[in-house]
Design a protein around this nucleic acid. Structure first.
Lengths: 337, 337
DNA sequence: CGAGGAAGTTACAGCGCTGTAAACCGGCTG
DNA sequence: CAGCCGGTTTACAGCGCTGTAACTTCCTCG
């Protein structure tokens, strides 16, 4: 069953290849008679265009890559879904690239040994520094996501993490909490994400005149529910007193919740908890999680806008866009009565 | 900054394009001297092959599509991660296609209006029937995942859902439970998945001599934690007596857990719960979930094996592969003391 | 009635690469 | 020393499509 080519259709309809191509693409200047004749040939032969060839000829593939560490991290699943939808709406398809958060994996993304396959890349780095990105990067349209600062010449979209962390912390302060811990930042090699969130947390405490107590920082060995559960459990066992927790992300919050429950500590009465990301699960934990919700659609749209401009040829300085967030209030840290 | 082509390198090195191509591909019969000369030219010019052109010439793209309803469903995140890794190990990259579980979305996948972009497709249908798949399908290598039966000529990989549902149910029976409910199947338009799982549940009850009580079937309006939380809450409020729940998947189990907790019903003492999929979250709920864990790696590997055979030209009857599963015992339905 | 234009159509040269067949070049055999 | 052989290299024809320029009709207008 040989593939039907444009030429076959052309022969069948008795016109030139280009005319067939014009019909396929709804090019306006084709006479109705020809159009109909060609269309019939198209149908009879069951022609399906070869995407590859078309793309070689036009130079654009219609494929974008979305790269991050791991799709099973709920925030990234959400990101993948949202970007995939938004991309589809613009006629692009999405290549999924996982880096496992390793330097090698991330280098591979940025230095793309093969050209041409992908029109552009949206990339949320974990391990790579801005400097390294600048060094390895090829001349493929690139938009960076996340808290990492971007190299000159590279576009970047993020939410204002410092502000968001402050908002989260303030919610706890409004509840009258004073011994507010921070959970889930890396114990070694703080990521950019954790560090800006910590900064916002500190800032909110300062503004409220609450002195920073270093013992309330509960780092964990890795970004996972497991590790933050361990960290919180250890703190409780060590007799640490606290009445609220700001968590680096919802995964950390979920781990924290579990540690508190295992120790029969009531949430939010004894300890209030806020998370970050508003992952789907945040509604279904018990109690459900108050959390920072990034405006995901807006983020995806903004990133795609920038990327499309790059693809279209914009080659100026890197743009920096800040997208919105909101605090979703649920059971784990309700509004004050 | 014009792209460097094979021809540019060839000119620079004073050899033919094909020789350069041979060096790039480590073709053995190239003299060391030439190889070295070409390699230098390659490096000096910073040549990067154009994937598209290569693929047009060879006819293979090295891209596979993975299609299912929604990446944010944890089972699919896991699937995406595992398949993506396995595919990467074999030199393929993964295009992510979301169908939203709609018929149109799924039709699009199977009928692929464009040819050539993708070497093969791994697809887990939700809405489409086997018949419809057979009707719409094009001649692109295709492997089906999930409980749906596959059309003749199409490969299919799944776990033995009836057996797995029986194992899950038996765990509850061994705990001495007799009033075992089933939660989270669709109240209208049962999917193939729900229906085989229900079948296994019934079979286990029968084997244990427990009569089936239809009132213990708690369907929900949609597959989500929210809906199954509602379904379970409603049942409790209606005074339904039960001492265990088999849930259609972990999402349903998580919803059920929340309903039970909100009603102060102890898990597993009053009601034991088993889920399905072993999503990452299953370890971090409180209590953690006993759940059916499909052998995801094996599933991905098997699917890719079949697909690669198809890509290589196998055109025989559809193969049917059954992969393993296990019951992961956690707090929500522990082993009997 | 011929110039000028718009609409419709076509031929053809790429896009950047690879497969094939053929050419080339010593070195070895008889 | 002709003939042959294997390793090495090359020219060239595609892969299937689109952009461009040019050509052909058929009108319209002065």
């Amino acid at each position: 069953m040989r593939r039907v080519r444009l030429e076959d259709v052309a022969k069948h309809a008795g016109v030139s290849m280009k005319t067939v191509s014009n019909v396929v693409h709804d090019y306006p200047h084709v006479s109705p008679a020809t159009r109909e004749k060609v269309q019939r040939a198209l149908d009879e032969l069951g022609y399906r265009p070869n995407a590859l060839a078309r793309r070689l000829a036009t130079g654009r593939t219609g494929i974008l890559a979305l790269a991050f560490s791991d799709v099973t991290i709920p925030y990234f699943s959400e990101l993948a879904r949202t970007v995939s939808r938004a991309a589809a709406a613009r006629g692009y398809r999405l290549l999924l690239e996982q880096t496992d958060g390793t330097l090698e994996g991330e280098r591979e993304i940025v230095s793309t040994r093969e050209a041409g396959l992908v029109d552009g890349v949206i990339f949320q780095p974990t391990a790579m520094s801005s400097l390294e990105i600048a060094q390895h990067r090829q001349d493929i349209p690139l938009v960076l996501l996340g808290e990492q600062t971007a190299p000159i010449g590279v576009d970047h979209v993020m939410i204002d993490n410092v502000a968001a962390a402050s908002v989260a912390t303030e919610q706890l302060i409004r509840l009258g909490r004073r011994r507010i811990g921070f959970v889930g930042h890396e114990s070694a090699g703080l990521t950019a994400t954790s560090s800006v969130r910590l900064m916002g947390y500190q800032r909110a405490l300062e503004s409220a005149g609450i002195p920073l107590d270093m013992s309330l920082l509960l780092p964990s060995d890795a970004i996972s529910s497991r590790e933050s559960e361990v960290a919180v459990a250890r703190a409780i066992d060590a007799g640490l007193q606290f009445d609220a927790l700001v968590c680096r992300d919802d995964l950390a919050a979920i781990g924290a919740l579990r540690a508190l429950q295992l120790h029969d500590i009531a949430v939010p009465d004894a300890v209030a908890v806020v998370g970050w990301d508003d992952v789907p699960m945040a509604s279904f934990t018990y109690p459900s999680l108050t959390t920072i919700a990034p405006a995901m659609e807006q983020l995806a749209t903004t990133a795609l806008d920038l990327l499309e401009e790059r693809i279209a040829g914009y080659d100026g300085v890197g743009r920096h866009r800040v997208t919105d967030f909101s605090l979703v209030v649920r059971e784990s840290a309700p509004d004050p009565a």
